[in-house]
Nucleic acid binder design. Structure first.
Lengths: 204, 204
DNA sequence: TAGATTGTTAATCGATTAACAATC
DNA sequence: TAGATTGTTAATCGATTAACAATC
C-alpha cells in the first residue's frame, strides 16, 4: 500500500490536471506539474512510475490518460455510500457538498440526528433518528460515515459506528480515536489546523 | 523550525493531556502517551527533548508542566485575531467554534459576505460586506483569515487577501494555492480526505 | 538495592532528490 | 542530428526506532 503522502499528491495531481484540462491542455510535462504543486519533477516522475503512469520523451504525459489511471487507482468506478451522523451546522454544510461528491463517486445516502426538528425521512437525502443508526448500517451495508455530532455525543456515536463494523470514519469531533482492526478513523480538527498555521506563521 | 509532523504530534499531546488532567491525573509516562496515541515511546521522549520538556526517572512527566510548555511553544500567550470570509454554511459552522477557539487564544473578530441578507455589523461577531475586506485587514492589522466562500469567488478572495498582506490563510475552497513569500496557505479539502479514507479502506 | 524510566546516541528505515542513460 | 524529457538507479536526507547508560 502506498504512503498517505503519496496518495495526497495523487489527489493533488488530479485536481490540478482537471484544471489544466478545462483550459484545453492535452499534454503536460513532469516539470509543469512540479512547478504548479511546488514539488520536484523527480518526485512527480517517481510517483507516476509507482502508479504505472507512463509518458513519452516527446510530448510528456497525456492528461486524459493520467486522469483515467488516477480514477482507477482511487477505485472511482464503484459508488461509495456514506452517511452523516449529526446534521447540525457542519453536517448540513457537508450535505451541500453533494454535487461535488456525486461527481467523485461518493454518495451521501442518509443523515442521522437526535433532534426531532431535524429528522425528515422524506427529504432528498433523508434524515433519520439516531436510534435507527445501527440497523440502517446493517441493512444497507454502509461502509463509511462522517461524524459531525457535538462533543457530548461523540464517544457514544463513535462506539455505535464501531459496533456496527463500519469500515471508515471521517471524524469532525475533537475526540481523537485510534484506528481499530476493522475501522479506519480519519480525524479533522479545525482548531489544530488553525493552531498549526499560527505556529508556522510566527516561526517563519 | 520543527516539522509539520512534530507540531501535529504536539497538538495531539496537548489534547490527550487535557483529557488526562480532567480525569485527575498529575503525572504521566512516555509509555502511556505513546500507547494512547499509537506511536512509540522513543518518539515521545525525542519530541519532548526537542521541545525542552523534561521529566524525572522517578514519576515521569508532570502533566501541568508539559501543558504549560506546549502553550508557550504554540505562542498561546497572545490572542490571534481571525476573520472569516464567506459566511455561508461552513462559515457559520465555524462561528460556532467560537467558544473552543476563544479558549485557545484564537479570536474570530469579523465575518465578510457579499449577501446583503447575511451582513449584520451589529452582531456579536459583526458580518460586513466583502467590499470592506481589504480596508478592514489594513485598519485592524489582521494576520489570519479563514476562507469559506463558494468556488466561484475563491480566486478573487484569495487574491484580495494576498494583496492585503495577510500572513496565514485556512482555505476551505477546493482551489489549491501555493504559499507565497508573505502568506502561508493551509488547505482543507474534505473531498480529498474522504477519497483518501476510501482508498485506505479498500487497500487495507 | 532492585527496578523502572528518562535522555540521548547510533542504527535503521523510508522518502526525496540528483544524476544520467535511454529514448523520442 | 541536436535537444529535451522520461524512467530509473544510486545518493542523500531526515525522521523514527532501538538500545542503553545515567538516574531516581
Amino acid at each position: 500500500m502506498e504512503s498517505a503522502e503519496r496518495i495526497n499528491r495523487l489527489l493533488n495531481y488530479k485536481t490540478f490536471l482537471y484544471q489544466l484540462r478545462s483550459l484545453g491542455f492535452i499534454k503536460v510535462f513532469s516539470d509543469n506539474i512540479a512547478d504548479a504543486l511546488g514539488i520536484s519533477a523527480s518526485l512527480v516522475r517517481k510517483d507516476f512510475g509507482v502508479f504505472g503512469i507512463v509518458g513519452s520523451q516527446k510530448g510528456g504525459y497525456e492528461i486524459e490518460k493520467i486522469l483515467e489511471k488516477i480514477q482507477e487507482i482511487l477505485g472511482k468506478d464503484t459508488v461509495q455510500k456514506i452517511i452523516i451522523v449529526g446534521v447540525g451546522r457542519i453536517g448540513t454544510a457537508l450535505l451541500e457538498y453533494k454535487k461535488g461528491f456525486d461527481k467523485e463517486g461518493i454518495k451521501i445516502v442518509a443523515g442521522f440526528d437526535i433532534d426531532p426538528a431535524t429528522i425528515d425521512p422524506e427529504a432528498e437525502i433523508p434524515v433519520y433518528s439516531t436510534s435507527l443508526l445501527y440497523d440502517y448500517i446493517q441493512d444497507n451495508h454502509i461502509q463509511f460515515a462522517i461524524v459531525s455530532v457535538p462533543e457530548s455525543a461523540a464517544q457514544q456515536t463513535l462506539e455505535t459506528l464501531k459496533a456496527a463494523h463500519i469500515y471508515g470514519i471521517l471524524n469532525f469531533t475533537t475526540l481523537r480515536l485510534k484506528n481499530t482492526e476493522e475501522t479506519i478513523i480519519s480525524n479533522i480538527n479545525i482548531e489544530h489546523e488553525l493552531s498549526r498555521l499560527i505556529y508556522f506563521v510566527k516561526n517563519r
